[in-house]
């Protein structure tokens, strides 16, 4: 999972979980259904124009609000490869790691990147590069414990492997 390349979609500050996936669509746990409404209340045209491998770049406090894990699930299932933000709300941050949606915190990258930029992201090193200019940014590194969960693709696989080892 280490190197990603994708096109940037820009969002502002305080993108809340109701904007990411409104509660009126939580009548299912099916991620593909959720993805059809991803970011709908922030940008109604988003579900129609996003392509697999694209990258969301946002301001501060991304994912504030509800604890609904449907939010990172909808983003992941919509094909978004990773989310880069100036900062993340706490529960979203934890949920994203648990379900294996890569997220990176970098105020510099969030300020520099523009819609349509192509970026390359090295998840292992936490490096972000805007391809046309070659500008590089480094993200706040995850503690080793969280890196381990992310490397396994989320908490479910992490727990499964722990259970397997103890058997």
């Amino acid at each position: 999972m280490s190197i990603l390349k994708g096109k940037v979609w820009i969002f502002g500050n305080d993108i809340d979980t109701d904007a990411i996936i409104p509660a009126r669509y939580l009548n299912t746990s099916d991620p593909s259904e959720l993805a059809l409404h991803c970011m709908e209340d922030a940008d109604p045209s988003f579900p129609g124009k996003v392509s697999p491998g694209d990258i969301i770049v946002a301001g501060k406090n991304f994912g504030c609000g509800s604890s609904r894990e449907h939010a990172p699930l909808a983003i992941k299932e919509a094909g978004i490869a990773c989310v880069i933000a100036e900062s993340f709300a706490r529960i979203f941050y934890r949920n994203a790691i648990n379900i294996g949606l890569p997220i990176l915190e970098s105020a510099e990258a969030a300020a520099f990147l523009k819609e349509g930029h192509q970026v390359e992201v090295n998840l292992d090193k936490g490096e972000i590069m805007e391809i046309s200019s070659g500008r590089r940014f480094s993200a706040v590194p995850f503690p080793p414990f969280m890196q381990e969960i992310m490397a396994k693709g989320g908490l479910i696989n992490f727990v499964k492997e722990k259970v397997k080892k103890s058997e």
């Binding site: 934890r94 949920n95 379900i99 479910i156 727990v159």
Partner: peptide, 12 residues
């Protein structure tokens, strides 16, 4: 507050 996967790990 936590998400669903943490809830599952918690109740197990």
């Amino acid at each position: 507050g936590v998400g669903s996967t943490d809830l599952a790990a918690g109740i197990i």
